[in-house]
């Protein structure tokens, strides 16, 4: 369970998060909103890359924001990036092992647990291939494997399906739906693909201009008038 209260982030004159408050209980939760709504900024606050001006985040009854950024992975926070960040000069195995060896988990079961995560995303056949030689779809899967290896508590996926063809998006959706049973982590999915969000997330929250404008069962949220208007408004601007 993660509880966000009155989170405010300002970059100079821009207020990216404006008193954001929300609770994510368990399982896979959606977080949607038009471009520039503050979704990535929210993830950056959780990761410790951005320091909020105000607000608190309690995650599994701990004060997340008081932890040093690199210690949050050890605590159990994992994420993927909007622009994919798999390490090109390392093999798939080393990319995943990198996360494992900086987590709380011992080295005794490392090999098995790393290969298990690679198996989970379906990259077992290319486990020892350099990531730099893989295509975009596979690289995104490497990021997912890094997010689920070991025992994560909180997994943040930032537009994992952006730029993927439909078949690969379907495969990714299947993986995301299996994350809770695989690792029992609370997962937050940010994506613009509404069918992916609907199929993966029983509940969804909506950000617009840094404020939460709706949250609840995904189907209800997507019918919510304010949400529809926020998206239509965004489309009018585009």
């Amino acid at each position: 369970m993660i509880e966000v209260s009155e989170l405010t982030v300002r970059f100079g004159g821009v207020t990216s998060l404006d008193g954001m408050s929300v609770r994510f209980e368990a399982g896979t939760c959606g977080l949607i909103g038009p471009n520039g709504a503050g979704k990535t900024t929210f993830f950056n606050v959780l990761s410790g890359f951005v320091r909020p001006a105000e607000g608190h985040v309690r995650a599994f009854d701990e004060d997340l924001l008081s932890m040093a950024h690199f210690r949050r992975a050890r605590w159990g926070l994992r994420r993927t990036f909007q622009t994919e960040q798999a390490i090109e000069s390392l093999s798939v195995y080393d990319n995943v092992a990198l996360v494992h060896e900086h987590s709380k988990l011992g080295r005794a079961n490392r090999r098995g647990e790393v290969l298990d995560a690679i198996e989970f995303v379906g990259l077992r056949d290319v486990a020892y291939v350099k990531v730099g030689t893989l295509g975009v779809g596979s690289r995104r899967l490497v990021e997912v494997a890094r997010a689920v290896v070991g025992k994560p508590r909180l997994v943040l996926l930032d537009e994992p399906a952006a730029g993927l063809p439909d078949a690969e998006t379907a495969h990714l959706g299947e993986l995301i739906r299996r994350i809770p049973e695989h690792s029992e982590a609370l997962t937050i999915l940010v994506d613009h693909d509404m069918s992916l969000v609907s199929s993966c997330c029983p509940v969804t929250a909506v950000l617009d201009f840094g404020k939460m404008i709706a949250s609840g069962p995904t189907a209800d949220v997507l019918r919510n008038e304010q949400v529809v208007r926020a998206y239509l408004g965004a489309e009018e601007f585009q």
Binding site: A73, V99, H102
Partner: peptide
Amino acid sequence: PAALAAGIN
């Protein structure tokens, strides 16, 4: 950022 997110000091 990717290194930090992987828990690397």
